[in-house]
Design a binder for these strands. Structure first.
Lengths: 227, 227
DNA sequence: GCGCGCAACAACGCATGCATTAAAGTATCC
DNA sequence: GGATACTTTAATGCATGCGTTGTTGCGCGC
């Protein structure tokens, strides 16, 4: 069973370890709090400890895990407060991205790509496919930040979205139907198209802040129920 | 000469390598564009390649260097546009931090620590000690973001401040005397003390945006002059 | 019966060696 | 004379081994 998982040609073992461990965390295969030893993961991936160790260091740097010498890598449990911190950062940076898009003005192709992402969200919701909706939603946010023209901002947002990803997925079916989200996104795109920076920023800020607070409260309820 | 530089007790070799290489980059001892092989750095630090390699991976993740297999680690040259991207992120996040400080209200000790940082900037400027001024300035920004109550935001800001650090230092004596900076900081602290979030955010935003644009233009002039 | 100390074990952190591979230099052919 | 192919060299990426260190379990003493 030490089959190298989907061995991409030319990919280094370290990159593969990073990608694979990250995927297992984001998918929930490695649940929050899980302790994984270097040796275990090395065997599981069919590699030696060296590339696995490198991957763990990178994941720790990105905030997904915590390294506890002699105890292994621990998948970081996220508290409601952590979620608020993450969403505060996302709110500020994405709202700024929306404003920048409206200021710069986007070309027709980029605008169309944003609108098609919203359309995908609508379609997913219409058929009650929440997983597809979440994918389309993440896609929209990614395209928006990339369209801002600031690649470093987009990278930070992507990293923070990663950290929150597990919990967004875990609460996907516990939260109200996200019809309002689709409306918000549509309004943001409209504001960008209308070259109205203040409106684009305000709508997106309210959207993210609201979503963050909702998730944080949901986590608080879950933690309470779990006790 | 393979003397382990300031070997802190209990610090792992990898941590030491990371800290030392980072320090050399920030201080300019390793100039932008410099190519350093794993083996060279390992000898220079009196370590083996393994911890050095780990440090290089981390530095690459943090955006300070670029890994070019067979060519070594290259200290990232920063363009004026890179500087604008960095400062845009800093502007958004620090302005948010200032707002949050004013919203939450800071205890007397934290407010005093911010004011003492401004006082240190004043004192440094009064004796024309620009290096001390830059240290005090960095200290102020660090304390402000940490006081925001959002540790993740503070960590991102610190990371981006690192990336810009080399160029701030390089242009320290080419820019106008930063008297206005001190005034801005004083005004931000006053707004926080007065619990005026909008004013705290607006002042700090203008401060960072102005500084970023000045630095970016300075870099453009330098690049032009360097050709 | 409880607490403290010691010993065995296991994971880690690092060094080292090896195979791979890309780059550079050289020689040969056109 | 120039270009191409081959050889050589060297840096990398990874595996492995060893010393260190922290932990856990057991035994002994109180």
């Amino acid at each position: 069973m030490a089959v190298p998982v989907s061995a991409a040609r030319g990919e280094t073992a370290a990159a593969r370890a990073f990608r694979e461990i990250r995927a297992r965390i984001l998918s929930g295969a490695l649940p929050a709090g899980a302790l994984v030893l270097e040796g275990e993961m090395a065997v599981a991936l069919g590699l030696s400890r060296t590339p696995v160790r490198e991957a763990m260091v990178r994941l720790a740097d990105e905030g997904l895990v915590h390294l506890r010498p002699r105890h292994g890598m621990q998948v970081k449990p996220l508290s409601a407060d952590d979620m608020r911190e993450i969403y505060d950062v996302l709110t500020e940076l994405e709202a700024a991205a929306a404003r920048r898009c409206a200021e710069r003005g986007l070309d027709a192709a980029t605008l169309a790509s944003l609108e098609s992402a919203v359309a995908a969200m609508d379609a997913a919701l219409a058929r009650d496919d929440l997983d597809a909706w979440a994918d389309a939603d993440a896609d929209f946010h990614r395209r928006l930040t990339e369209a801002s023209g600031n690649a470093m901002l987009a990278a930070v947002v992507a990293s923070f979205a990663d950290r929150a990803h597990r919990w967004r997925m875990a609460t996907l079916r516990l939260r109200p139907r996200p019809d309002a989200s689709n409306d918000d996104h549509r309004a943001v795109v409209a504001a960008i198209r209308a070259r109205d920076p203040a409106r684009a920023e305000a709508i997106h800020r309210a959207h993210r802040a609201g979503a963050g607070e909702m998730l944080a409260r949901l986590l608080e309820r879950l933690a309470f129920a779990g006790d």
